[in-house]
Design a binder for these strands. Structure first.
Length: 210
DNA sequence: CAGTTGATTCGCT
DNA sequence: GCGAATCAACTGG
């Protein structure tokens, strides 16, 4: 299929708030499936209370403090994997969460991998997107800018006018209240069916004791 | 459509 | 121990 130029490490080395919207319409390929990104979220490194890097490097978040263009794939809610790409300068630990997209190549592989799921939902949400790409914890640290790596990003096949880009608060991020939460760091393409519905970051109600 | 709930493991305090 | 950058199934309108 026709894809744009491959995105380089220089592309990911820019500021996360520039990289995130620039990824809309771009594509990521892994394990036989290509997804066109329609929704992303920026996480601004160690100074961002919503980021996993907020409390400094740990074994889990080590890769975020490394080079731009590497994948940070984390496990959450006891069952889901979500994928980010590291951005900015080394040691900064900023990253873009890949929140949603649509499968544009590898439909047969995706259909097998996501058996029983409607095509519309294959990459509608970060855990679904990672699952459809076949990404899990074994791919964390993978260099998407390496010529012989298994994952790669490609520029949008079509022109994405700035007027189609929307911004808003991040989804499902607890611990709001800091300065970081005042900024709309979620970016999506207006009018795309694959964009997940916004839900405010509301703390889960604890079940009452019996 | 919107709203609610259980599932289930890990990372960190 | 607590709660999480979520999902799928289910309810009621």
């Amino acid at each position: 299929m026709e894809v744009g130029r491959r995105l380089t490490r220089d592309f990911f080395g820019e500021d996360v708030l520039d990289v995130a919207p620039a990824l809309l319409g771009a594509m990521i390929s892994h394990a036989g499936v290509t997804i066109r990104l329609t929704e992303v979220e920026a996480y601004a490194g160690e100074k961002d209370p919503g980021s996993h890097a907020f409390r400094g490097p740990t074994p889990r978040t080590q890769v975020m403090f490394g080079r731009a263009g590497h994948l940070y794939v984390y496990f959450t809610y006891g069952m889901h994997w979500c994928a980010n790409v590291v951005t900015g300068t080394e040691g900064e630990a900023s990253a873009v969460l890949l929140r949603a997209g649509e499968v544009v190549d590898g439909h047969e592989v995706a259909a097998e991998r996501r058996a029983g799921i409607a095509e519309r939902d294959w990459a509608r949400g970060p855990a679904r997107l990672a699952s459809t790409l076949g990404l899990d914890g074994t791919q964390t640290g993978l260099d998407a800018c390496s010529p012989d790596g298994s994952a790669a990003f490609h520029a949008a096949a079509e022109h994405v006018p700035a007027s189609r880009i929307r911004t808003g608060p991040r989804v499902g991020v607890a611990g709001a209240g800091g300065d970081a939460e005042r900024y709309p760091w979620r970016f999506w393409l207006d009018g795309e069916r694959s964009v997940s519905v916004y839900r405010p970051a509301k703390p889960r109600r604890r079940r009452e004791p019996a």
